[in-house]
Structures are given as structure tokens and as C-alpha cells.
Simulated assay, not measured.
Amino acid sequence: MAIQQALGDALSENRFVADKLEDVARLLEQQDASPFRVRAYRNAASYLRDLAHPVRHDYERAGKRGLDDLPTIGQSIAATVAEILDTGASSLLERLRGTTDPEEVLQTVPMIGPELARRIHQELDIETLEALEVAAHDGRLATIKGIGPRRAESLRHSLSDMLARRRPRRVLQDRQQPSIADILFVDQSYRSNLDGLPMIKPRRFNPTGEARLPILHVERDGWQFTALFSNSPAAHRFGRNRDWVVIYFERADQPEGQVTVVTEHGGPLDGKRVIRGQEKACEAYYLEQVQEHLQAH
């Protein structure tokens, strides 16, 4: 009897995960995401709901790869399932609902309290643990007051332990991201079509509770993109909440990444849209565009 009860509890967790995946599919559909992406989450939800053994067993046995090996569960969805099994929540689902609180997410990391989480979010516009890990490796995290190189190294180890089961090995060394051209194209597509985009109700900085934050889902060159204006405290404080665009991207063989595109003020890129932290690459991209234009004429 006890064994049957334990199995029933484990299978109810399957249904819990499936319900969250179904919620993702429903919101993606409402927000005009590609039918392929909607169908992928819906199929995964259906599979997990009918699975005869606890999906947690696959995760505990082989980490994210154990989830990847299941029918209908691709790498991107496997990461979402892993996060739900680890935390009981999905940052993707919370983002689609407009209920995400990045500072609470950052505080799940040892050594990051409320004040440090606030500084990281405000100064780097980071909203996910994956993006925080990238910042810890590329040096941006060490620039935050109160961290420095030694603490950044400790945070790298903590994040590595926390995220190890959710991703393939060597993911940071092999990490790729969309081209500068693709990211800037998504940014332009978002800002030029605001009136026609679905709206979400952000929990923060929204006292009236209205649906006021446009969201774009688009696929380009094999990448799935989600774009929306930054709703961070810094964006509101500097009056850039209709300028800074946060773009999330993922691909079947890559974990989710995040960049912020802003209008540059001053310097050689004055007035241009620039990916924060990749200013040199953006400068080279714009120079190449000018050269191509001159050659064509």
C-alpha cells in the first residue's frame, strides 16, 4: 500500500509538470508564438501526463540528458522540466505571465542577498541564473560593487553546481548566440510593431494591473526569440523602459540566453541600437554595413 501511495505521489508530480508545460503552450499560443513551438510544449505535456513512471527518476538518473532522451522532450523543454523539478516553478512561465521577479531568482544563489541581487539586476539587467553564470564568466559580474574577482569565482562554482544537471556538459565553452544581425533584426521587429503585439500584465511597476507590456515571439535562423521592453528598476529610473529591449533566445542544442539592446548615447555609435556588453562587435557590424553599402553603390 505504501509503495502504491509513493508511486501515486510521484505520478502526481508528472501531472504537475505537465500542467505547467500546458500553461506555457497556452500562453505562447495567446501571444502568437510559432505553432511549432506551441505544439512542442503541448505534446510534451501530454506525454508526461500519461507517463507510467516518475519523470524525476529519469532526471535523477542522468540529469538533463535523461530528460532529453524521452520522446517529445527536446533540449529546450528538458531545461524547463528540470527547472520545475528543481524549484517547483518555471521562469519561462512566469515571464510569459508577467509575474517574474528577477531579484527573487538571483537570491536563490548562495552569497546573494536582497541588496546584491538588486544591484546585479539593475546594473546588468540580468533576470535568469543562466545569464548570471555567463556574466560571472565574462567578467561583468566582478564589476558589481561588493563582488570582485574572488567572490565572482565563488559564485561561478555555486552556479555551476546549481545548474549542472539542467544542461549538457561543456555548455559554457560551446555556448553560441545568434548573430548581431539577427538580434538587431528582432529588436527592430519588436519596436516597429508595438501596436500589433499581444500585451502582458507585468507585476512590477504596474499599479493599475493593466496589460501594457508588448511581447514578441519570433523564430529566425533556427533560434526562438522572445522580446519585450525591460521592466527593471533601472530602466524606469533612467526613463528607458520604452528603449531598453530584453531579448531571450534559445535553440535545440543551446540553453536559453539573454541580451539587452539599447540606444547608444555618445561616441561612434551615437543613436545606434547596441547590444549591451557587445559594443565592439556592434561597431564592427555597423562598419561592415557601411562598407557593403558603399560597394553596392
Rank of each mutant, 00 (worst) to 15 (best):
M1N: 14
M1Y: 13
Q5W: 08
Q5M: 07
A6H: 06
D9T: 04
D9M: 09
A10H: 02
A10S: 13
R15N: 08
R15F: 05
F16I: 05
D19M: 02
D19T: 01
K20M: 08
V24H: 02
E29D: 14
Q30V: 02
D32F: 01
A33G: 08
P35Y: 10
V38Q: 01
R42L: 06
D50N: 09
L51P: 06
A52M: 09
P54H: 10
H57M: 13
Y59Q: 06
E60Q: 02
R61Y: 08
A62G: 03
R65G: 12
R65A: 15
L67H: 07
D68H: 14
L70E: 14
L70P: 14
T72D: 09
G74F: 08
A82H: 04
D86E: 15
T87C: 05
A89P: 01
S90P: 10
S90Y: 12
E94M: 02
L96C: 11
T100V: 10
D101W: 12
P102H: 14
E104F: 11
L106S: 12
L106D: 13
A117H: 03
H121P: 09
H121R: 15
Q122E: 03
Q122S: 12
L124F: 03
I126W: 02
E127R: 14
E127G: 13
L129W: 03
A131R: 01
L132R: 04
E133H: 11
E133C: 04
H137P: 07
G139R: 05
G139L: 05
R140I: 13
R140V: 10
I144Y: 03
K145G: 10
K145F: 09
I147C: 06
A152C: 06
A152M: 05
S154E: 13
S154D: 09
S154F: 03
R156V: 10
S158M: 05
L159R: 02
D161C: 01
A164E: 07
R166I: 15
R167Q: 11
R167I: 07
P168M: 14
P168A: 14
R169D: 15
R170L: 10
R170V: 09
L184F: 01
V186E: 00
Y190P: 00
Y190H: 13
N193D: 00
G196T: 00
M199E: 00
R204Q: 14
R204F: 03
N206W: 05
T208D: 08
G209D: 10
E210M: 09
E210G: 11
A211W: 02
L213P: 00
H217E: 00
V218G: 01
E219T: 11
E219Y: 00
R220G: 00
G222F: 05
Q224F: 07
Q224S: 10
T226K: 02
A227W: 09
S230L: 10
S232Y: 01
P233Q: 07
R237D: 01
R237W: 02
Y248P: 02
F249H: 12
A252P: 13
A252L: 13
G257R: 03
Q258S: 03
V259T: 05
T260Q: 12
T260W: 04
T263D: 06
E264W: 06
G266Q: 06
G267H: 09
G267E: 07
K272F: 15
R273P: 04
G277D: 08
K280T: 15
E283W: 06
A284Y: 05
Y285H: 12
L287M: 03
V290M: 07
Q291E: 15
H293V: 04
A296K: 15
A296R: 15
H297W: 10
